[in-house]
Design a binder for these strands. Structure first.
Lengths: 224, 224
DNA sequence: GTCTATAAAGGGATAGAC
DNA sequence: GTCTATCCCTTTATAGAC
């Protein structure tokens, strides 16, 4: 079915992530194991419910080793979240960066976005970050800046360019970009977050969702 | 400005809520105190972080009393969530129920929706339900059915009527309804969930958000 | 039904050896 | 850096008196 270890595959795309709240030695095999195990555990069980014992067990190290790499449970979680955001964003913004025509740019961006947020890892990440944000203030800010904000701003810049060119009429590009992504989300994201559907919408359904969003965004629903 | 105790005021609108996963005697003063205190505590601290000791303290009862009314911490949380959903939905659906013209219906529905989801109680409820859904399966389903689903379906029915009347062109009313609410959400909801902005958007900003969503939804952004 | 007191378990974090 | 062993605290849930 799905990729067995796929949910944590993206963690070591670039360098082993220099992302903690304080700087740490990037080169460490055990450190990577801890990050991988931590990501898995936090995403499956949530931050509070996850125990450092479990993380240690999955990483194949002792708890003391974890605490030699990360100051606290919160610091470990923060490092994981930052690493994930950096790994996941680029492919979404790509489409809008080279100036394709509106329909294509929106379709491509929307589909990439939908694919991302419906995949198991990001879904769990989103849920866990939201849950902890009120008791871990910098986490929310970091996540937003490194994730949703970057994506929205890339589309906003694209819309602003199309507006300047006279192709589209978008007086508030940032707001419209956020609203476009909101359309693509619809309830699909919420239903997955709530565990309503065991499986996410398939490729055909995603096409329908994105196509409908693009058409409405570009032309509206008023009968012509 | 806002109601000081408003975040927990809606809990006792109808009867004292006959909503637990199993049926319970509705008439109980202490039971109400427990529900109120539980709602407060879970929303502030999240499900895992909240302790039954804290709930007992705020309710002015002993822990043993709580366990005499609710089988477990999960059962208490479930009862709270169900009660909240029932109290908060009606005012949103009202606008679409009597068939106003599209612009007015969308504006009114969108604004009521935005006001609801940006207020402290629902915001915390949403966050906590999301966090617990994967480990508390029926909770997610109950919440969706009693909350988002009802709201979306009310608007979907309205859009379907307008489509039948030839006023709007909405071949997929349920999808479009979900997408309209997604537009209104934009990033405002996310930013509040993440604690990015200390205070929610004011009345003027909300007007801008809703107006932009309505205009785009009805007419699109393509230059005419 | 309601209380006090406590059982029973699990958690984050650390000491000290190597 | 890494391990084993453990401290110390909090938690859910319950026993037993009233």
């Amino acid at each position: 079915m799905h990729n067995k270890a796929g949910r944590i595959a993206s963690i070591e795309n670039d360098k082993p992530s220099l992302v903690g709240t304080e700087s740490e030695r990037p080169e460490s095999r055990k450190r990577d194991m801890i990050i991988r195990a931590g990501a898995e555990t936090f995403m499956e069980q949530g931050f509070e419910a996850a125990s450092m014992d479990e993380v240690a067990r999955r990483a194949g190290v002792s708890k003391a080793t974890i605490y030699s790499h990360f100051e606290s449970k919160h610091a470990l979680f923060g490092a994981i979240v930052n690493g994930r955001c950096q790994a996941m964003i680029p492919k979404i913004t790509a489409a809008a960066l080279d100036d394709q025509p509106p329909a294509e740019a929106l379709r491509s961006t929307g589909r990439s976005f939908l694919d991302l947020i419906l995949s198991p890892g990001p879904l769990s990440l989103y849920r866990t970050v939201l849950a902890e944000a009120p008791r871990f203030p910098e986490l929310g800010r970091n996540f937003y800046d490194a994730g949703p904000n970057l994506v929205a701003q890339a589309l906003a810049d694209y819309l602003a360019r199309q507006h300047a060119l006279g192709v589209l009429d978008v007086p508030t590009p940032r707001l419209s970009a956020e609203q476009f992504f909101g359309m693509v989300l619809g309830h699909a994201h919420l239903r997955m977050l709530l565990g309503i559907d065991g499986t996410p919408p398939g490729a055909d359904e995603r096409d329908r969702i994105v196509e409908r969003a693009v058409q409405t965004f570009l032309h509206g629903v008023t009968k012509r």
